[in-house]
Amino acid sequence: MLDTVFWPLVKIVVLLNAVMISVTFMTLLERKVIAWAQSRLGPMRVGPYGVLQAFADPIKLMTKEDITPANADKMMFTLAPILSLVPAFVVFAVIPFGDDPLYYVADINVGLLFLISVTSIGVYGIILAGWASNSKYPLLAGLRASAQLISYEIAVTMTLVSVILTAGTLSMVEIVEAQRETGWWIGFIQPVAFVLVLIGGLAETNRAPFDMPEAEQELTGGFHTEYSGMRFGLFFLAEYANMIVISAVVVVLFWGGWLRPFPSVGALALLDYIPSWIWMFSKMFLVLYLFIWIRATLPRYRYDQLMRIGWKVLIPIAIANVVITAVVKVLL
């Protein structure tokens, strides 16, 4: 009872709180990095160097008035933020943050597939938010967002097939173990897949340069235009939690998860004294920094360009990658 119910529950509580706290600091990090890229200072008023801004924002969101538009579909309007938040949090169950069972909630035999399928549920939150608001721009944004998510989901899933072929397993923990055994991060064996997942991950989390669903200039804010207070906060939380998930997926699949750099080089064995979870978190931080950097650097794509990249570039490359991987795997 203690092992099957109590400790997993403790782990879940710790993990969810860690995710929420990291999300609040992600927003601060994002504002600081973008400010730095634009030669500004960013938030400086709350606390030293604006560090407490991370807590000021959620408090502001929680105390704001929560408005439901008069003509909105009340039930769906309430359900939408929940539907987008829950999948973003559920997938953390299968992400291994370290080499010990202490550092992950569950190691299930279809872990990667579970992750893909649960994240694909998140699209309902967005499309229903757009519809339930009963307002033109949110509906347009919701339809755009769901079309974008579905298109890029195909590309990412096809790409992950080649990763599964390389690792020979669906379990997240065993994928990292496979990288330890071969001594090569899959990112080096599958560079094309790495780039595809990175691009697809940007699109799946609605990040710049693919932040079409929330293009302020075109859609007055996006699918959550009609939302205020903590319901908007839930969408915000879901988006950043998804970013963390994507960064963890990229690290586990391509950068060796919790392994140290060059796991096969014996001369670097000294690095093993650094705990595994520190490697995992520092790699995730690098990926998240990369995402923010991209947002500060690249302009937004037009919608037709976005669709063309998804369907005519990413998906064919992903399929070709799967075929090549399979052939090489058979020949070797």
């Binding site: 279809v110 597939l113 893909i116 399928s117 649960v118 694909s120 549920i121 699209v123 579905i150």
Partner: peptide, 11 residues
């Protein structure tokens, strides 16, 4: 179960 979520619910 996973295919059910992926294909039915997600697709």
């Amino acid at each position: 179960a996973v295919i059910q979520i992926l294909v039915y619910a997600g697709g």
